[in-house]
Design a protein around this nucleic acid. Structure first.
Length: 503
RNA sequence: GCCCCCAUAGUCUAGCGGCCCAGGACGUCACCCUUUCAAGGUGAAGAUCGCGGGUUCGAAUCCCGCUGGGGGUACCA
């Protein structure tokens, strides 16, 4: 049985899109999961397709690799880790493509085209005007060897085009969709080698996939229309064709491709937006694949166990932020340990200035406090970016200013709130807030003494202690804030109420 | 325009000829729990399986057409 080899081949033109991240994950799952279960040793290759110098963006390769590692997706061969089929950067492999192009010219499968970009544009416009499909008119297809030599001698710049058969059909077998049939007559003589000596995607991908012994070509569906050229190229070069699997596209909620306009599509934005790599992976896995339609929660481990290419859907999926958010919260609340959550909140807390700068790990001087807050808030943090706000009253000594009206409980007035808080102030120093049960018993009794419902007493205390009407359970919250800060915050609340002149 | 892909609730999906007048999840709504908000629990609404023809004793499932959505149509990937 043949070894499974797949590859992800991005062009370094910008930040990695989540569609790309999903492709990488499926590659890793297929190579390391399904392949292994089938008794093969799968390899995942990372290759950089930088054949278009004009679109190259500095730093994107490094960014891409660091974002993939953030997700926990590793490659077996690639530009940084090397491997037996290197180099893994196409701009360093140009001689391979030139050789292949020369071979194709020699065998009559390709020809040199001397048409200028201006002429091509004019041809396209003319065809379009006449209501015909725009394209190349095969002007140089039948140049005689003498004509070609003459132009070459004259130093005319040229490209190399593939000589597509004019009749018959080309079949592209796709693992997810079956055979896709094209009439050769409708196919163009596409450029495979540009005038600058660089190959186009079509030649480069076929040459590299062959030389890197790729067994399964996984890629986005935008490549389906040019796949027949790739099939023809394999045939003309006399190489065995890999298995094609064109993955489904991720659509924006508004339809069309997902982009930055739709609230962040790059991996960087998700990382900075407070998403866990585990949750993102879990969500992405389900966007186009399912185990049984029932199971929703997957770790990379269980995915490796169950993922198969055969169960990948061929229809596109719409990206749903709400479900991703739910997934993220679920992971925080149910799969992460308190310790883990605290560690992951640290960078966000430091960044927001909620706690002082320091190492983003358990050695940070405030780590214990963050852990305490994490324990109480883990069931209500959706995104890690919410941590600074949600944890502020636990981690900071002073409360930001809040509206005194919040201190007044439902169906009560300012006088009642003041009376309640003054009563609390008089007993709180005798209550051990570290003992939640005793605290609760004492305050419930206090409510009775004051003729208030428990909630009518608890709300003013909550607001006094936290500056807001929503918090975890009151007594665990008081315990975590601590005796001193609670006492001073109650005193401040009393002053605040008095200052309203309503009492 | 031409070529290609796709088509089950708002969204992700299960279903691969009878078990389905369609199951799960997100979202929505209600109730329970309750000191608030969450979390959790229970339940509800929501899909004539895009439409129309076939094939079959029987179709969400197979075939054809249409419609809709998407992709491609570059010396970009």
């Amino acid at each position: 049985m043949q070894e499974v080899r797949v590859r992800f081949a991005p062009s370094p033109t910008g930040s990695l899109h989540i569609g790309g991240a999903k492709l990488v994950m499926y590659d890793v799952l297929f190579a390391h999961g399904q392949a292994r279960r089938e008794g093969k040793r799968g390899t995942f290759v990372l290759r950089i397709e930088d054949t278009d110098q004009k679109r190259f963006v500095e730093g994107t390769v490094e960014n891409l690799m660091s974002e993939l590692r953030w997700l926990g997706l590793e490659w077996d061969e690639g530009p940084d880790v090397g491997g037996p089929c290197g180099p893994y950067v196409q701009s360093e492999r140009t001689h391979h493509y030139k050789e292949a192009a020369e071979q194709l010219i020699a065998s009559g499968h390709a020809y040199r085209c001397f048409c200028s970009p201006e002429r091509l544009k004019a041809v396209r416009e003319d065809l379009q005007k006449r209501g015909l499909p725009p394209g190349y008119d095969r002007h140089c297809r039948n140049l005689s060897p003498d004509q070609v030599q003459a132009k070459l001698d004259a130093g005319e710049s040229h490209v190399v085009r593939f000589r597509m058969p004019r009749e018959g059909e080309t079949i592209v077998p796709d693992l997810l969709r079956g055979d896709i049939t094209y009439e050769n007559e409708k196919l163009e003589d596409l450029v495979i080698l540009k005038s600058d000596g660089f190959p186009t995607y079509h030649l480069a991908v076929v040459v590299d996939d062959h030389e890197m012994q790729i067994t399964h070509v996984t890629r986005g569906p935008e490549w389906i229309p040019t796949a027949p050229l790739h099939v023809r190229l394999y045939d003309a070069l006399g190489w065995e064709m890999p298995i094609f699997a064109h993955m489904p596209l991720i659509l924006a909620p508004t339809g069309g491709k997902l982009s930055k306009r739709h609230g962040g599509a790059s991996l960087t934005e998700f990382r900075e937006g407070g998403y866990l790599p585990e949750a993102l992976l879990n969500y992405l896995a389900l966007l186009g694949w399912s185990l049984d339609g029932e199971t929703e929660i997957f770790t990379m481990d269980t995915l490796l166990e169950h993922f198969t290419l055969e169960r990948v859907s061929s229809s596109p999926a719409t990206f749903d932020r709400d479900k991703l958010d739910w997934m993220n919260q679920y992971w925080i609340n149910h799969l992460l340990t308190v310790d883990d959550l605290a560690t992951r909140c640290l960078p966000f807390l430091i960044d927001a200035g909620t706690i002082e700068d320091g190492p983003a790990d358990a050695t940070h001087p405030r780590y214990d406090d963050v852990e305490t807050a994490s324990a109480l808030l883990k069931d209500r943090v959706r995104l890690l970016t919410e941590a600074p706000d949600l944890m502020s009253y636990f981690l900071q000594d002073t409360l930001p200013d809040y509206d005194a009206a919040l201190l007044i409980p439902k169906k009560a007035d300012a006088a009642t709130a003041l009376r309640a808080l003054e009563a609390v102030a008089s007993v709180v120093s005798d209550v051990d807030l570290a003992d939640e049960e005793a605290t609760e018993a004492r305050f419930r009794a206090l409510a009775d003494e004051l003729g208030l419902k428990a909630g009518q007493l608890f709300m003013p205390i909550r607001v006094a202690a936290t500056g807001r009407t929503q918090s975890p359970g009151l007594f665990e919250t008081l315990r975590a804030i601590g005796q001193d800060r609670v006492e001073s915050r109650v005193a401040q609340a009393i002053d605040k109420l008095k200052a309203t002149n309503q009492v």
